[in-house]
């Protein structure tokens, strides 16, 4: 009887980790790499560059919005919080179609961008927009949760001791909410760098790694796509793993 939970957990672990293990033991990188590499490195650079921009925007705006959602009360704020769940629930393909309708050449904002000689389709800007749209809700709600965990009484105390709100935020609120913010950042980063459904609709070019892997699958087959998938993991995993390790070490340190 006691073995059943263990077996079920092993089943979950096996289901999730088996494909990763297969990828790790994939031996055809050397053979197909010669064909995949020409697309791989530009795609890697495009992915990293776009993700850097999108995460910078998400971090800045998501932190502010998450704080406001955590601290503000009232019907309007709760209604906004509910509405902001919608992008989180949209299928990525639908996100791409909606972004095209707004930022595409004939879209509501796309026409203004065109007037400014900017384009939000098939450009790095388009990739960034798609990544932000897909990843922002993950960070936003994680930030809201993290800030909610910080007792408002701590902020009152800091202010009564002479620290204005901005100093209080950086000296008290932010340090105490870092574990939650880092978890949200890791999730948003993974979502951003891995964005595919919306990106392929609004930004076929430049090829990000997920898009390049899809093209490799269609044109060269699974082994070539797996090569790019392995490269993608090498690019996407380190940051979230480092953040996870940091959180664990910090948690241990607090009780020393």
């Amino acid at each position: 009887m006691r073995a059943i939970p263990i077996l079920l957990t092993a089943l979950v672990g096996g289901f999730l980790l088996l494909p990763v293990a297969v990828l790790a033991t994939h031996t055809s990188i050397a053979f197909h790499g010669q064909n995949a590499v020409p697309d791989a490195w530009p795609s890697l650079v495009a992915s990293l560059e776009a993700t850097a921009w999108s995460m910078a925007v998400i971090l800045l705006l998501g932190t502010v919005a998450g704080y406001m959602l955590a601290r503000r009360a009232g019907v309007l704020w709760r209604a906004l919080e509910f509405l902001l769940l919608i992008p989180l629930l949209l299928p990525p393909l639908v996100i791409g179609l909606l972004l095209m309708s707004v930022y595409g050449p004939y879209g509501l904002l796309g026409q203004w961008l065109s007037a400014l000689r900017l384009s939000a389709t098939n450009t790095l800007l388009a990739v960034v927009l798609a990544q932000i749209y897909e990843a922002m809700p993950y960070y936003l709600f994680a930030a809201q949760g993290a800030f909610s965990q910080v007792d408002a009484g701590l902020e009152r105390t800091s202010q009564s001791l002479g620290r204005p709100p901005l100093q209080t935020f950086f000296r008290v609120t932010l340090p105490l909410s870092l574990p939650g913010l880092s978890a949200g950042f890791a999730m948003a980063f993974a979502r951003s760098i891995g964005a595919f459904g919306a990106v392929i609709v609004i930004a076929y070019y430049p090829h990000t790694l997920p898009v390049a892997a899809w093209i490799a699958l269609e044109e060269q087959g699974l082994p070539a796509a797996l090569t790019l998938a392995a490269l993608f993991l090498l690019a996407a995993l380190p940051l979230p793993l480092i953040l996870l390790l940091w959180r664990r070490l910090r948690h241990a340190d607090r009780f020393v």
Binding site: D151, G153, L154, R156, T157, S158, V172, P175, L176
Partner: peptide, 12 residues
């Protein structure tokens, strides 16, 4: 200076 019932110490 304002001291509440909870000590509100900064744990970090």
């Amino acid at each position: 200076s304002y001291v509440e019932q909870q000590a509100n110490l900064f744990d970090h």
